[in-house]
C-alpha cells in the first residue's frame, strides 16, 4: 500500500512516516502543498494524508484539484483545525476522513488501513485466497492453520496481491503501491520480493502455489485447485 503524507511539520512528518513504513506502507512525504499535489497527480496512492494548513497550496485546495481531475484516492485530513465547521467543510469538500491533531498514532494507522481497504471494496480486515488467510488489522497471515511471519513490506505485497485476487497485477503497479520513491524503478526488487513471498507462503509440501506469473503482464494471485 502506498501512502502520500503532506505535512509541513518536519518532526510530525518524520514520526508518521516512520510509523507508516513500519506498518508496511510505502510512504512518500512532502512538506508543502504544491509538491504534495504534484506527487498525488503523478502517482497512484492508496491513501493520501493531507494537512490543511500548508505552505503553497493548502490541503483543501489540493483536495479540490484532485477531485476535479477525477482522482479518487482516499484522502484523510490530518490537521489542527478542530471545529465542527472545519470538519464538516473538509468532509463535504470530498475528504474521506478527518483526524485532529494531536492524534493517537494507532488511530491514524487504523484509519489509513480502513481507507486503503475501502478502495478495494473490502469491509472486513480478513482476506482469503485458497487456504491462505490474511488479517490486515492484526497483521497476521495463516495458511492451513500455520502462522506465517512476514516482513512489513512482504506483508504489504501479499495484502496487495490478495486484495486484487484473480486480477493481473503488473510490476509497475506493485512498485507504485509497495515501494516509495526511494526504490529504483530499474531494479528487480519486485521480482525478488515475489520470489521471497512465494517461499514464505509455502508452509509444507502440500501447499499449492497461489502466486502465478503471467509472462509479460505481471502476477495473478488465485487458488487453482
Amino acid at each position: 500500500m502506498r501512502v502520500l503524507l503532506v505535512e509541513d511539520s518536519p518532526r510530525l512528518r518524520k514520526s508518521v512516516t516512520t510509523a507508516l513504513k513500519s506498518s508496511g506502507y510505502a510512504v512518500d512525504s512532502e512538506k508543502d502543498g504544491e509538491e504534495g499535489l504534484w506527487q498525488a497527480q503523478n502517482h497512484e496512492y492508496d491513501v493520501v494524508i493531507l494537512d490543511i494548513m500548508l505552505p503553497g497550496l493548502d490541503g483543501l485546495q489540493i483536495l479540490e484539484k484532485l477531485r476535479k481531475e477525477g482522482n479518487e484516492a482516499p484522502i484523510l485530513f490530518l490537521t489542527a483545525k478542530d471545529t465542527i465547521e472545519d470538519r464538516v467543510h473538509g468532509l463535504r469538500s470530498g475528504a474521506d476522513d478527518y483526524l485532529v491533531k494531536p492524534f493517537a498514532l494507532e488511530e491514524l494507522l487504523a484509519r489509513v488501513e480502513t481507507l486503503s481497504r475501502r478502495k478495494y471494496q473490502k469491509r472486513t480486515s480478513k482476506i482469503q485466497v485458497g487456504d491462505l488467510e490474511l488479517d490486515s488489522a492484526a497483521k497476521t497471515v495463516q495458511r492451513a492453520g500455520q502462522s506465517i511471519d512476514l516482513a512489513a513490506r512482504e506483508f504489504s505485497l501479499l495484502e496487495y496481491l490478495m486484495l486484487r485476487k484473480g486480477q493481473v497485477v503488473s510490476r509497475t503497479q506493485i512498485e507504485e503501491h509497495i515501494y516509495d520513491d526511494m526504490a529504483s524503478p530499474m531494479s528487480n526488487v519486485v521480482d525478488s520480493a515475489i520470489c521471497a513471498l512465494r517461499k514464505h507462503i509455502l508452509v509444507d509440501k502440500e501447499s499449492v502455489p497461489l502466486i502465478h506469473t503471467r509472462r509479460g503482464q505481471g502476477y495473478v494471485m488465485e487458488s487453482r485447485q
Binding site: 511539520s9 518532526r11 510530525l12 514520526s15 508518521v16 516512520t18 510509523a19 513500519s22 489542527a80 483545525k81 478542530d82 471545529t83 485532529v100 491533531k101 494531536p102 492524534f103 493517537a104 498514532l105 494507532e106
Partner: peptide, 28 residues
C-alpha cells in the same frame, strides 16, 4: 484561544507521535 490551541496542537502532536513510534518500534 483558538490560535493558542492551534499553536500547541502541532508540538503536542509531534511529541505524541514521536513517543508512540518509539514505544511501538523501539528500534526506530
Amino acid at each position: 484561544s483558538s490560535d493558542i490551541a492551534h499553536e500547541l496542537r502541532t508540538p503536542v502532536a509531534e511529541l505524541k507521535s514521536m513517543a508512540e513510534v518509539a514505544i511501538k518500534w523501539p528500534e526506530q
